[in-house]
Write a protein that binds this DNA or RNA. Structure first.
Lengths: 335, 335
DNA sequence: GTGAAAGCGCTAACAC
DNA sequence: GTGTTAGCGCTTTCAC
C-alpha cells in the first residue's frame, strides 16, 4: 500500500510537505503542491485512517445508539444519516440496546471502549450513567427524535404533542367522537403522542376515558398493533376511529380490524404517525403525520459534525415541522 | 485515557506482558496474569483500536456494499449482520452504490481508501474492476443474496429459480392459469425469479407470454410495483393471479389492484417473495416465499469472519432453504 | 517554505 | 517468562 513516504520520495520532498498539501495547509509552493497532488492522483494514495486517528486522537466515527427493535422509521432515518455522514468522511458505528438495564450497561461499556467522536441517540436510554459518561467524557451527543429537558444535549425532533393533537383534530373534524388510542411503552414519544390525543379530545369537549379507549402495548410493532387493536375491539365499546402512535402500530391495527371482518375506513378510521415508506402504498393508504425524515436525518448529521468540529452551534432544541398526510384510511363515521 | 503503559506501570510489568495477557498469549505466569486482568477491570482499560489496527494492519471493519435503494429486506438483513459482527468485535462500514457507472467507480475508490478487512456485497456491482480489485487486493468478499458463476467469491443465497417455481406452482395448484409476473431491473434475482415463473408455467404446459404477462419495472419498490401492476391491468387481458419478484413490489401491486376497484384475493391473487416484516400484517396477509433472514445474516457474518481469520472454509456457494408462506392474498380463482 | 524528529498506542521479534 | 526495542503511517512542533 502506498504511504505518505512513497509520495514524498517520488516528489523529492519530505513527508511533512506532503502532509501539508494533503491537509490543505498553507506554506507550500504552488508548483510543489501541484506535483504532489498529481502524484496522489496517479498512485491513488489515500491517508491511512488508523494512523491519522492515532495522531489526531480522533476516530472519525460517530456512534448510533439505536434500540434493538430498530423500527422502520428509525431504519429509514439511519439511512439518511449514514449517507450524509459519509460526505464528511465519517463512519458510523452501531450500538444496539435493549430495554434492559444490563443491555444498557454493556452498551455503555462498549461506548467507552470505542472512541467515537460523537454520538447520535435514536433511543432513549434509561440509565443516568449513560448521559453522565457522555458529558464527563466531553463527547458531543445529539438526541434525535426525542429530548431530555434536564440535560444539555442538543436535540432535534417534531413537536410530538402538537402534531398528535392535529392528528386527532383531523379525526374530529371528520365527525368522529369515539376515538381510541393505540400506543406502546418504552419511548417518551408514545406518551407525548397520547397526551396530544387527550388534549385534542379535551379541547373538543369530549371526555377522555383512558380505561376504555387507550391501550399501551409492549412495542411499536405491527404485531403489537394488531394485539392492541384486538384488545380495544374486545372491550366491545362503540368506536369509529383509532389513532395509533406509529404507522407500524397502525398497520397492525388495520390488520386486526380486517381480521374482525370490519373495514377501514368504512367501519373504523385509522390514523398513524411517522409516514414511513409503505404507508402510502397500503390499501387503503394510511392517513398519518409525516415527520420530515430527510431533514431530520441530514440536520442530525450536520449538527453532530458541527459539534465534533467545535463549531459554534445553537444548542436550543430544534423543532422540525410536521405535516398532516391525508390518505384513504380515514373518512367520516358511519351514519 | 488509560493506555497499556499505565496498566504496565501499575502492575510493575512491561507493556509486552500486558499485551500478552490481553491477547491471550501463553507464557505469562498465572498470578501476574491475574494482577493485570484485575487492573484492566478496575481501570476500565480497553486497547486503542487505531493503534492495534496500525500494527496489525487490520481495520476490524467489514464493508457492506449496499444499493442506494437499500430495500426493506436488505435493511432487515443488515440488522442481523451488524448484530452478529458486533460479537466478533467487528465494525461495519457502508458503501452505498447507485446503478450508475460513476457511482460504482467512486464506491470503488472509497473501498480502496478504507482498508476494510472484508466485504459483504448485498448489491451486484456491474463494474468488473470492482471484483478484480477485491481479488487482487486479497480482500475476502462474500456475495450475499446473489452469485457470480465466473468468480471465486463465496456466495450465500436461496435457490431463486426453484423457489420462484414453487411460488408459481402454488398459484397453479389453486387453479390459476392466467398468471402475470411483476419484476424489476438491476438485480439478477429479478431475472432468476422470472425464469422460475416461466419454468413453472412450462412445466404445467401453459404458454409463457412475456409480451403480455411480464413487466419489468425500474426498481423493487412499492411505487414501482404499483406502476407495474397498473400497466398489467391496462393491457386488459384476463388475469387471475400475479407473482411479484419481491414483497415490496407485491405491496405496490396490491395497491394498484385496490385502486382499480378490484379485490385481493377474490379478483386477483397476489404472491410475493422475501417475507419481509410487514408482509404478515398486511390486510390480506401476503402469501410469499420466505428467505431465511436470520440464518442468511448470521451465516454471512460468520463466513466473512472465518474468511478474514483465514480459517479453512468451504468455498462452494451456500444454498439456504426457502419456505412457502401461505397467507390470505392467494385463493382459488373466481368461477 | 521546507525538513528532521518525536510521538500517538500498540504488537512482535529478539534478547535475556 | 519477561523486558527491550523497533516500527506501523501519520501530523506537528521546532529548527533552519
Amino acid at each position: 500500500m502506498v504511504s505518505i513516504k512513497d509520495i514524498a520520495r517520488l516528489a523529492g520532498m519530505s513527508p511533512s510537505t506532503v502532509s501539508r498539501v494533503i491537509n490543505q495547509k498553507k506554506y507550500v509552493k504552488p508548483e510543489i503542491r501541484k506535483i504532489i497532488l498529481d502524484l496522489v492522483e496517479q498512485t491513488g494514495y489515500v491517508p491511512n485512517r488508523a494512523a491519522r486517528s492515532m495522531v489526531l486522537q480522533r476516530s472519525f466515527t460517530v456512534g448510533i445508539i439505536a434500540p434493538d427493535t430498530f423500527n422502520m422509521f428509525q431504519r429509514q432515518l439511519f439511512s439518511v444519516i449514514e449517507h450524509r455522514l459519509e460526505t464528511f468522511g465519517y463512519h458510523t458505528l452501531f450500538f444496539f440496546v435493549k430495554f434492559e438495564p444490563e443491555s444498557e450497561e454493556s452498551c455503555l461499556a462498549r461506548l467507552k471502549a470505542e472512541k467515537v467522536d460523537g454520538v447520535i441517540m435514536l433511543h432513549e436510554v434509561k440509565d443516568h450513567h449513560f448521559y453522565d459518561f457522555l458529558e464527563a467524557a466531553g463527547i458531543p451527543a445529539l438526541l434525535a427524535t426525542f429530548d431530555r429537558k434536564d440535560s444539555n444535549f442538543c436535540s432535534i425532533h417534531v413537536d410530538e404533542e402538537k402534531s398528535a393533537q392535529e392528528a386527532v383534530q383531523h379525526l374530529l373534524s371528520l365527525g368522529h367522537r369515539q376515538i381510541d388510542m393505540l400506543s406502546a411503552e418504552g419511548f417518551t414519544f408514545g406518551l407525548k403522542r397520547t397526551d396530544g390525543y387527550r388534549q385534542a379530545l379535551r379541547n373538543a369537549g369530549i371526555g377522555v376515558d383512558d380505561e376504555k379507549r387507550v391501550v399501551f402495548t409492549p412495542a411499536f410493532t405491527p404485531a403489537s398493533g394488531r394485539l392492541g387493536m384486538k384488545t380495544l375491539l374486545e372491550r366491545n365499546h362503540e368506536l369509529s376511529a383509532v389513532f395509533a402512535a406509529t404507522d407500524e402500530l397502525a398497520i397492525g391495527a388495520m390488520r386486526a380490524i380486517w381480521e374482525a371482518g370490519l373495514r377501514v375506513p368504512q367501519d373504523i378510521s385509522v390514523m398513524g404517525f411517522d409516514d414511513i415508506d409503505i404507508s402510502a402504498y397500503l390499501s387503503p393508504g394510511l392517513t398519518t403525520v409525516r415527520q420530515p425524515l430527510v431533514e431530520l436525518g441530514e440536520s442530525s448529521a450536520n449538527l453532530i459534525h458541527s459539534l465534533i468540529c467545535e463549531e459554534a452551534v445553537d444548542r436550543a432544541p430544534i423543532i422540525l415541522p410536521h405535516t398532516l398526510v391525508i390518505r384513504e384510511s380515514t373518512a367520516e363515521p358511519k351514519k
